[in-house]
């Protein structure tokens, strides 16, 4: 009997902490977004804040900007991640294991630094007075800083995308790397015996094994870049904002009556992430049934 209860007792402290701090945050957000706030004596439930945001252009602009930035960041990050894995694979089949480990470690370096610092690095390299523009001028490709394409604080969000790809592709590589360690070289040699070159061997033997961790990392990168705050706060524009910046500014700079609206934005966007997570989960489950 005690044995049955043991895992629950072990997990209880963590669960309580998560429920109070995390689930609590979501629940309070939901309550506040429907105007239900017993702590300050408001008990009238209303959907007007949701209607308000769904009827506002600002919200939909922010929504589509955020979707665009998160999708492009995810796509580029995943492509870069797979390219790096392919390159590590080439090193491995050429018996250059030491350099493969070194290259992998080197590629992880950006993970050590916060998004704040990374936004700054992207700013000083890609802004119109940044290093890239100086080098292009030096090479005679552009003749004034105005000719440099606007990549920072631009409406499209290229600066934000660059920062996310730079920061998240090491994470993708970290998630995929164990697959490379698991694939036995003999399998690749066998593929070569049957006439496959290195690329075909990678496509036929390694890539199928990458799909599952690739989906998971794509989901994590997408959901993170969907709602993270610091990067678009520094590299974004006043209009259109991303959802997280839009909601934070509504929360802090508007008057108190605007706060439930910020909560409604938060809850709507959290809901999006959870729906995408469920789709991902069901896709994975379907895959499991086939195998």
């Amino acid at each position: 009997m005690l044995q049955n209860r043991k895992p629950y007792l072990l997990i209880l402290p963590s669960l309580l902490a998560t429920v109070f701090l995390f689930i609590g945050g979501i629940l309070y957000g939901i309550f506040e977004s429907i105007g239900f706030s017993p702590l300050v004596g408001e008990k009238q439930v209303t959907l007007k804040y949701y209607l308000e945001i769904f009827n506002s252009d600002d919200f939909w602009q922010a929504f589509f900007t955020t979707i665009r930035i998160a999708s492009l960041s995810t796509i580029f990050s995943v492509i870069l991640g797979v390219l790096i894995i392919y390159f590590l694979y080439i090193m491995k089949v050429n018996k250059k294991n030491q350099s493969a480990i070194l290259a992998q470690r080197l590629f992880q370096v950006p993970m050590l630094f916060p998004y704040l610092v990374f936004s700054y690095i992207v700013y000083i390299i890609f802004s119109s007075t940044g290093w890239c523009s100086r080098i292009l001028y030096g090479l005679g490709i552009i003749d004034s800083m105005d000719n440099f394409p606007i990549m920072i604080n631009d409406r499209f969000g290229w600066g934000i995308i660059i920062a996310y790809v730079w920061k998240t592709s090491p994470f993708v590589v970290l998630m995929l790397y164990p697959v490379l360690l698991k694939v036995p070289l003999s399998l690749i040699d066998a593929a070569k015996v049957f006439g496959a070159n290195k690329f075909t061997a990678f496509k036929e033997v390694v890539f199928p094994l990458l799909i599952s961790p690739l989906k998971l990392s794509a989901f994590i990168v997408f959901s993170y870049s969907f709602l993270a705050f610091e990067v678009p706060y520094i590299l974004g524009v006043t209009y259109p904002k991303t959802l997280s910046v839009y909601s934070y500014l509504t929360y802090t700079t508007g008057n108190l009556s605007e706060r439930p609206k910020a909560m409604a934005i938060n809850i709507a966007s959290t809901f999006c992430v959870i729906v995408i997570g469920l789709i991902f989960y069901l896709l994975k489950k379907g895959e499991g049934n086939e195998g």
């Binding site: 998560t18 945050g25 629940l27 997280s244």
Partner: peptide, 30 residues
């Protein structure tokens, strides 16, 4: 250990990875 509800509990515990803390903390602010 194997126990009932393990998957759901694990999902709850790991969920903060995909939802940035600022979204949660605005809710907790009051």
């Amino acid at each position: 250990y194997k126990f009932k509800g393990k998957k759901i509990i694990e999902a709850i515990l790991l969920m903060p990875i995909i939802i940035p803390p600022i979204i949660i903390m605005m809710g907790m602010h009051k």
